[in-house]
Amino acid sequence: MTTRAEFMARIRAELGKTRGLPPATPARRPARPRVEAEAIRAELAERWPEALERFRHELEKVGGVFYRVATLAEVVPVVAGIARERAARRLVSWHAAELGGDLGPALTAQGLEPVAMPPGEVASAAERQRLRELVAAAELGLTGVDLAIAETGTLVLSSGAGRPRSTSLLPPYHIALFDRTALVESLAQAGVFLELWHADGAPGPRGAVISFITGPSRTADIELTLTRGVHGPKEVHAIFVEAPIRG
């Protein structure tokens, strides 16, 4: 088997043979990602309505559904409405602390069967298995959002404690809540936040996966016919909450 040293030595040897290559530099990186991220937020404090409108437009173009409500409490009837139209009841969600509030009792009152994910990891394998089956059987997955990218209609979700990956993946209907603080205009701006999240080099509180979600799961593999819901959700609903979700 090739060792790291052998492998890298060969690469260095070949690189040593190159001659006359064009000058080239990688992309410019934010020197101080925190400052740039704050600058983006500050600009968006004024421009957010345009960005939100663009987000709605792009999300709808990729087959997503957009809603706008005033407060977190108003999310409940929207979710209940989505569930009712689809004759769905079983809902799994991020943990209340990650979602920004405990919607469980209100959703139950609307006839749903909500189950919030635990706030952290679960030691018992049997319990993990039970939770996985629960998520796999659920019809609705309710999550928060870390970034909403207007340019592409994309939701960015980081995994982590209380926010399992499968909640936005296994149920056929994904419902995501976001507020102004998540909104960015472009992929380039999202890049600044990605740089920021990784700036300290430490794992931090995040999980190992960041997912960009641009509309419902789709394929055109059979005679180029667009079909939704191959492996991931067949519907994506994004609910914009006017009042900041986290106080």
């Binding site: 994910m117 635990p118 952290g120 990891e121 679960v122 993990r128 939770l131 996985r132 995994s159 982590g160 404690a161 209380g162 399992p164 990956r165 499968s166 990605l194 794992p203 509180p205 995040r206 999980g207 190992a208 996966v209 960041i210 997912s211 960009f212």
Partner: peptide, 13 residues
Amino acid sequence: LVQGPRRAGELEG
């Protein structure tokens, strides 16, 4: 974007 195996605190991965 996958950064290594399941992290402490994560239910799955």
